[in-house]
Write a protein that binds this DNA or RNA. Sequence first.
DNA 1: TCAGCATGCGCAAACGATTGTGCAGCTTTA
DNA 2: TAAAGCTGCACAATCGTTTGCGCATGCTGA
Lengths: 343, 343
Amino acid sequence: MEKLPTIKEIAKRLNVSVSTVSRALSDHPRIGLGTKLKIKQLAEELGYEPNAQAIFFKQKKTFVIGVVIPFIREEFFSQAISGIEAAAMEHQYTILFGQSHDDPEREKAVVEAMKKQRVDGLIISLSKQTNKYEHLEALNKFEIPVVYFDRVPPFKEAHKVFCNLYKGTVDMVGWLFNKGYRRIAFINGPDKLNASKERMNGYIEGISKQKLKVDMQMVEKTDLSKESTHNAMKKLLALKHPPTAIITFNDYVHMDAVQFAQKQNILVNKDIVFVSYANLPITSYTAFPPLVSVEQYPYGQGERAMELMIKILNEKTDNKIINTSFYVEEMPATLVAYQQTIS
Amino acid sequence: MEKLPTIKEIAKRLNVSVSTVSRALSDHPRIGLGTKLKIKQLAEELGYEPNAQAIFFKQKKTFVIGVVIPFIREEFFSQAISGIEAAAMEHQYTILFGQSHDDPEREKAVVEAMKKQRVDGLIISLSKQTNKYEHLEALNKFEIPVVYFDRVPPFKEAHKVFCNLYKGTVDMVGWLFNKGYRRIAFINGPDKLNASKERMNGYIEGISKQKLKVDMQMVEKTDLSKESTHNAMKKLLALKHPPTAIITFNDYVHMDAVQFAQKQNILVNKDIVFVSYANLPITSYTAFPPLVSVEQYPYGQGERAMELMIKILNEKTDNKIINTSFYVEEMPATLVAYQQTIS
DNA sequence: TCAGCATGCGCAAACGATTGTGCAGCTTTA
DNA sequence: TAAAGCTGCACAATCGTTTGCGCATGCTGA
């Protein structure tokens, strides 16, 4: 069992100083060619690799970015993290991973742990329940930049990457209208989510734009649990004039809604058509994927969030001038019709 | 913008030495009560938190475990990583995350990056293509323990956690036999995967146990791509006596196989029944989930892998005696009938 | 009264690497 | 031929923290 070789070890074996070894390995011009060669050869032999911990410790930089998301098992987030990882690798960064499980306490604990690890920055998609931001503002105070993505905070003073679903929702209502649907219902998410407000505004605008009347009986809410969604469906189906089209908050709500409709012997996408958000690959395997989806590009969001982070970090080291402005990146949400892979 | 406070800063403000501050904060008995109080109070005020980078650097420990998996988007792995994370948090460890994308080159690159970050240990599920292990043996050489899970290497000299699917497969064949099926086909994964061999042996044993004859025409292979699975299905359906039951390598192969069957206007689970491995939550949303599945407990595997890792690390610090034996943990794979949630 | 011990704290080395400075010895140039 | 410049290397400080050792001071007991 060998120890990982150090610069010291090389110096001792070759009877030179550690500084000479350090400079030789980084091709410093003031080191003689012969010495360089000897050193590099021995380094190669020993399988020397610089101790990142030591370097980063001295440079006060770790090249580690913390990433906190609600649930990795949600495909949206696993795709997002893939985008983050891809961008990170390209710039020699590594990522520390943590889940909040949509619990603010756990979110706080994870963020603390990452702060202890002295991550260079934090990329986070907030937990549904998060309404206090002290644990995150604490990071700002200590010059650890935070980039939010998808589930971003309501205030302006933050770097964010997100999809604005307003326009996508307007388009979706328009699409349904053009297909002849008039009784368009909407199962929205929790009020406090920004994403819910955007969708809601888009829905109202979309309905109005088609000269239809907004009927609040057609709007239900779910806390995103299966029971809650089933409950919303129950109410919609009990209406005197039940909807002929249902827009659901996301693909998971979609699947739960479809499940409920089937239980009621409703012919999905015949009696009632279902459309949704997210366009996740798994839906292509389900019996009744949304006829049309608002694509939110999770991979792209993750990628952009990471690139933004790197940009911020570079600015921090380059200019000593503290940049007090915040980056806000709004990505387009586009309407995607379901690709018929079956039959 | 404040800097993160250091022990030095506290020492300067209180006109004591850094060693006194360090000892005071860790309740050393030789530090006076009054001094301790003053120091602790100021530390609290400044929001002091020890610089983990510095401590770990000195202690040659990072409390970071590298985790490398093929694809986070596969539910099996996202569940596994949740188990790993849960166990890690419980013991104050954090996890560095990387994906191999089933590419040995990328796997190597990720492992190298983690080695540079001086992770305390590495938990890995091998890429499908990995058949050289130098990049991982390099870690062993430098006393960075490696725990493999699920996709484990063929050799003995390794810590492993996995499900042996042999018995599960025997049981599955038995289940089908009891239900009256006799022409039981099998779409297996790539030969080089251990998991394929286990399943194959189980299949053969299962068939023989029921006094049926093993018909190699009933056994097809897939490289796990959709095309390859469709191709395997094509061959099976073209047989003079096509199967009445099909065992697929995993839930993704299952979904692709079902998709193909539907294209051929075959009544799934009526003309042919499909059974599979993994029992992933998403299959409950699909039109035709496997009638029965061999549950592989990804969360449990991840959890156990992490616990094993911590055990190994503790042994390393406790006894200076190097433990040369390897831990091999075989988890039971149990047969699970599909929970009918629809209708 | 003084050795001996406990108390309370500071000094300095160490972890692995980077980097400014200094100092030889050699070569160049006026 | 001596000042000036270049070449090739070593020394030492530094990052934040821990920890063995040592040095005062005050107290105890014989």
